[in-house]
């Protein structure tokens, strides 16, 4: 089972390493982690996708909550939240393949952000499932390099907002 957690932590130098260290130390699986400063520079917002059974996921929430730097952790439930991930994909594309790739990219509302005679870089944003679907569409092409950010997410509406 997978869960997406949203964390609000103190923007201090050791905070991210304490959180990732906790995952490796206790043997929790982390699928992706993204971090960035919030509107209030004293805090960092972190989105973690973790997998495990119910008990492990409950322990993850409790153990993370226990860390001194962590102000809040809660689950971003799929039905009450939006998630986005950004991926950049460098594809081998000579003149004959270029049009086909551009067509697929446009269908997925992606952007071409770099073009050379033999390659393209595509930028695509969306839920993980959309990016996975896009990558399947590129099956016949040669992917030279791929960079994914992991997901960032927010809850819908104002119910769970923490006013700093």
């Amino acid at each position: 089972m997978k869960k997406v957690f949203q964390l609000l932590v103190d923007n201090t130098s050791g905070a991210l390493s304490r959180i990732s260290g906790l995952f490796s130390r206790r043997g929790y699986n982390i699928e992706s982690i993204t971090a960035g400063v919030t509107a209030d520079p004293r805090y960092t917002r972190i989105t973690i996708v973790a997998s495990g059974d119910d008990e492990i996921l409950e322990q993850i929430e409790k153990q993370v909550a226990k860390l001194v730097d962590v102000r809040d952790i809660h689950e971003l439930k799929p039905e009450e939240s939006v998630y986005r991930e950004l991926a950049m994909i460098k594809v081998r594309a000579g003149a004959e393949k270029r049009q086909g790739i551009i067509l697929v990219t446009n269908t997925f509302r992606g952007n071409i952000i770099d073009v050379t005679p033999e390659s393209l870089i595509i930028e695509i944003t969306g839920a993980q499932s959309k990016i996975d679907a896009f990558l399947r569409m590129l099956d016949g092409y040669e992917i030279l390099e791929l960079a994914r950010t992991g997901i960032a997410g927010l809850g819908r509406g104002v119910d769970q907002v923490i006013y700093l």
């Binding site: 008990e55 409950e58 322990q59 409790k62 153990q63 909550a65 226990k66």
Partner: peptide, 8 residues
């Protein structure tokens, strides 16, 4: 006193 111990 430690919520993480409960249910661990």
């Amino acid at each position: 006193v430690d919520p993480a111990e409960i249910g661990k």
